[in-house]
Each structure stands twice: as C-alpha cells, then as structure tokens.
C-alpha cells in the first residue's frame, strides 16, 4: 500500500468519490441501452414494460433493428470499412514497428514524431484535408484527360483512407511496444540452427508479435467503427452506421430502435475490447 498514514474518514470519502465516478461513467451507457427494452414509442420514462420488439419486430411503427434496412446497410458498410481499415493499418503498423525498432537511419527521431502526429491532429481536419486532396486530383484528371475518377469522390475508399491515416499510428504504437520486448537471442538461436531469415521471421518473430497484431487489429476495427469526425466529410452514398444513426437522431427524432442499436454496439464493442485485452496477456507459464 502506497499511503502509510491512512485516515479512515479520508479513505472512505476517497472510495465514495471513486464509486461516484464509475456511476458517472456508466450512467449514459445504461440509459442508452436500457430504453431498448421499453415497450414505448419514445425512449423516455415512464417504463411501459419489457419488450424485444425494438430488436425483432418486423412492422412499423415499431420496426426492430434487425428488420430496418437502412440501419442494417449502415452496419454492413461499417463492418466492411472496419475490416479494411484494421487489415491495412495492422500491416503498415507492423512494418513501422520493424522500421523503428530494428532500422537505423538518419533523422529517426524526427520520423518517429511524424508517425505520432496523426493521433493529435483533429479528426475533422484529417477529413477535410484528404477530401480536398482527392477532389483536387479528381478535378485535375477530369479537366486534363476528361476522365471521371469516381473512386476519388467521397465514398468508401476515402472513408477507409481517412480512418487509416490516424488508426495506423495506434496500431504502430501497440505493435512497436511488443517488438521492443522481443529477445534477440531467440532469432539468433534459430539462425544458428540453420534457418533462413524469412523462416525466422515466419516461425519466430511474427508468432511473437501475433498477440499485439490481433489486439491492434481489434482496436483499429473498434476505432474505425465508432469514428464520426473524419468519416463525416468523406462519406458518399454508402453511409456507415454512426452516420446513419446521427442522421436519424438529428432529422427524424429518436425512437427506441436507436437504443437497440446502442445496446448492440455497447455489448459488441465491450466484448471485442475484452478479447483485445485478453490476447495481449502472456499465457500463464
């Protein structure tokens, strides 16, 4: 224990404060999730009784989330975008980890800071700057060659690139931290036993990195899934779930179907976050 002269009244107050903080942390999540089960057309009190209609009912006005075409399409696009972003960013994150842990090149510190930078650039600015560049390129090609490059217009590709631009920093940091803990003698042993460099990479180094790569992939997927600021500027007609939900909240007004989606996402991301923590734990030996 770090604090030797403990005053019981002080410690009681301290614990109360910590408890109050966790209630504060949980309150809006509970509110967002709980109203999914209220048998009412509005996400508000009074409690009208328990129902699962907001998940499974197939008729208006209580259209459940699993029958709501637009929400399902949003979920599908979010999923596709999340998979693409996490795959790409884990790949570049891994090469970055090798580059900065193993590589020796001039101005390494400067480049390392460049790698951190995307994490502190506001998401809105990443969004608009990528939108501006892509549109400039598309317009230039159109004016000069009379060619319409559809993929440079707002749409899935730009959303993926926009999210990838800062999620790669996160994956790089996670994988770099793991690679730093690697014991070089393991590689040397494999080399002495006659393995080639490629074999060592495939059978020694990459398996060691695998937990960090999986965790980074999950984190990348979650950050991509919940991203709003960057996506807002780059989205075309294929809206991911957060954008669809926001539109509905702002324009149509909220019905408990949004609570059903919230519940689904809170549980889903909570489970994924648990998995990402669990895979990073070293197995008990």
């Amino acid at each position: 224990m770090a604090n030797p002269n403990k005053n019981p009244a002080f410690m009681f107050g301290y614990r109360l404060y910590v408890a109050a903080f966790f209630i504060f942390l949980a309150a809006p999540l509970i509110a967002a999730g709980a109203f999914a089960f209220n048998d009412s057309l509005f996400p508000a009190l009074p409690w009208q009784g328990f129902t699962l209609d907001w998940f499974f009912n197939d008729t208006e006005p209580k259209l459940g989330m699993f029958h709501d075409r637009r929400l399902l399409r949003g979920l599908y696009y979010s999923f596709i975008i999340g998979i693409l972003v996490s795959t790409l960013s884990v790949f570049v994150g891994t090469t970055n980890a090798f580059l900065f842990v193993r590589g020796n090149f001039p101005a390494k510190n400067f480049f390392y800071i460049l790698m951190i930078l995307p994490l502190v650039i506001p998401g809105v600015i990443l969004g608009i700057s990528i939108l501006v560049l892509a549109s400039n390129m598309a317009n230039g090609v159109e004016d000069r060659f009379n060619l319409e490059l559809e993929f440079l217009r707002p749409g899935i590709l730009l959303v993926v690139l926009g999210q990838f631009s800062f999620i790669t920093t996160i994956t790089s940091l996670v994988i770099t931290a793991r690679l730093k803990k690697f014991d070089y003698s393991m590689e040397e042993a494999a080399l002495n036993l006659g393995a080639s460099r490629i074999q060592v990479l495939r059978s020694v180094t990459l398996p060691f990195l695998r937990p960090a790569m999986i965790a980074a992939g999950i984190v990348g997927f979650l950050v991509s899934f919940e991203n709003f600021n960057t996506t807002l500027f780059l989205v075309g007609s294929e809206s991911p779930l957060t954008i669809t939900m926001y539109d509905r909240m702002a324009k149509v007004g909220s019905t408990p179907v949004l609570n059903a989606v919230s519940f689904f996402l809170i549980v889903g991301s909570g489970l994924l976050a648990l998995i990402s923590v669990a895979v990073q734990r070293d197995p008990p030996s």
Binding site: L29, A31, A32, P43, F228, M245, M249, L265
Partner: peptide, 14 residues
Amino acid sequence: WVSDLIRAFGWILL
C-alpha cells in the same frame, strides 16, 4: 470503445 454518438445519446436521454 463505445462511440461518442452513443454516449452523447445517453446523456440526451438523461
């Protein structure tokens, strides 16, 4: 890891 949107939505409901 829960979206800002959902957390803000929760506060609105409260």
